[in-house]
């Protein structure tokens, strides 16, 4: 584990928030991401975070929290 389940949950939540708000900010600059693509990007981010989190650590696995 690279991080604790609690922190993983928070990271997923924060990335969703950044996705939603970031999409609005990008729209101000004329970059429009359609809803479906936004949802896909969200899924990719969540999957990446989960894989990163559960990927075993090289060496001694530390357990924070």
């Amino acid at each position: 584990m690279h991080t604790s389940p609690a922190k993983l949950l928070i990271l997923i939540a924060l990335s969703l928030v950044i996705l939603v708000e970031g999409r609005t900010v990008l729209a101000f600059f004329g970059i429009n991401i359609p809803p479906l693509e936004t949802a896909l990007i969200g899924l990719v981010i969540i999957a990446t975070l989960v894989i990163w989190a559960i990927r075993p650590l090289r060496g001694s696995p530390t357990k924070s929290e």
Binding site: L9, I10, L16, V17, E21
Partner: peptide, 15 residues
């Protein structure tokens, strides 16, 4: 999970 869900929900709704 409940508090985090609230956080995500409020961001979706208020945005």
């Amino acid at each position: 999970f409940q508090v985090v869900l609230w956080f995500v929900g409020i961001v979706f709704m208020t945005n």
